[in-house]
Structure formats: structure tokens, C-alpha cells
Amino acid sequence: MSNTVITANKLTKRFGDFVAVDQISFDVHKGEIFGFLGANGAGKTTAMRMLCGLLFPSSGEATVAGFDVFKENEKIKKSIGYMSQKFSLYEDLTVKENMEFYGGIYHMTDKYIKEKTAYILNHLHLEKEGNVLVKSLPPGWKQKLAFSVAIFHEPGIVFLDEPTGGVDPVTRREFWNMIYEASERGTTIFVTTHYMDEAEYCSRVSIMVDGRIDALDTPGNLKKYHNASSMDEVFLQLARKARRSE
């Protein structure tokens, strides 16, 4: 149990008659990179939003960092980081100001915020851009910055919703290096994506089709089981069954 940081048991979300997430069950272990795959409209984001305490589940059970998603959603928020699909740093604040703001909200001390900001800027080779407004940065940098801000307060778990959407392959590679680094420090990563090459980087992968989890295993086992040479093939085999699209 101590090794499990996220549990979901028949977690469901209905919007009227539409079942966006249909009784999904899974466990995520501490420190792993858990890939959440699925076509557009499969229900990935909805599931993630329920776990982050942004959306009220319709039924089922789930805990994040040991807290119940129904009742203890505000406690969950202290232990997680979240990077949404939409870029959501303040564009009219500078890089440093964004870090200061989010650090401050998570009750970090001024001194620590300063140290951490300096460390991250150095690490991302953005020392010169510290006082530049975020809106004037290129998209790839923004994405890396958003990830750094999402884990600025050093959460145990971080949720990434399609973090590499619309980013060039080089930056995607760099981004995944950052994810690995965070994972090595013991952060659990919960990431949605529809790039199948990224799925190969994950410790375990779940594939959602029409609101249900159709497969959940390590990339290696999934390929073996479906008799496929790549995750792409596995995904196509499963996704072909999908009845709904966007």
C-alpha cells in the first residue's frame, strides 16, 4: 500500500447520458512513469481532472497520495503538481515572477523560492531570460518552463496532460529528459499523450478506448501480448475498436 500513490476503483464520470470515463480501475506506484494513452475523446483528460480535484467524479473510488478524491480534494492539491493541456503560465509576468507566484501559493519561503528559481534557470540555461515576459519566449521553452513550475513546489506526484503537444521532436526529447530526472528524484509521473514513441518511455502504460481502460501493462508486455513490434501497432489494434471520436 505504501508503494501505491494513486488508486482508482471503478472511477466513473458521466455528463448527462454520456459516460466520459467508464469504471476505470488501476494503481500507480511510487516513482513510476505512468503513461495514460488514448485517442482524442477517449476520456484521458476527464480522468486526470478527477484525480487532480478539478472535476467531481460521478461514482467509484479513488485516492491520490492517500487522500480520497471525493472528500479530501483540497489535501490532494498540496501533494500534486499539474500541467494542463493549455499553456497556463501568466504570459504577462516574467519567468521569475511566475515561479515566485506559484512558489508563494505553495507556502515556500522567499529564500527557498529564490534559490530554486536560480537553480532551475541555470538548469534550463535560461539565466538571461529570468526577467523576460513569458509571452516573448518560444513555445518549446514555455513548455519546459511550465513543467518546471508544475514541479516547483516538489510535489510527490505530477500530472501532465499532453505536455508535448505541438512541440518539435528535439524539444520533446529534452522534455522527456526532464521527466526522467524528476522521476529519478522519486516523483511519480502521470502523463497523458498520444505520441506512441513517448509511450515507450513509460514504466507502465494504460490505453483508454471509449472511456474504458482496455490494456494496462509495461510497454514490453503489451507488445508481446498483442504480437506487435511497436506501441504504435498495439495502439492501432486497440483504438480501431473505438466507436466514438471527438
Binding site: E74, K77, Y82, S84, F87, L89, Y90, E91, I105
Partner: peptide
């Protein structure tokens, strides 16, 4: 609209 409120909502604020 720009989505920053979601980032705020996911903090313990």
C-alpha cells in the same frame, strides 16, 4: 479563457 484559473484551482489556495 487562457486557462490559468485551472492552474490556480489545482493549488491548495
Amino acid at each position: 479563457e487562457i486557462g490559468t484559473i485551472e492552474q490556480i484551482n489545482v493549488t491548495p489556495i
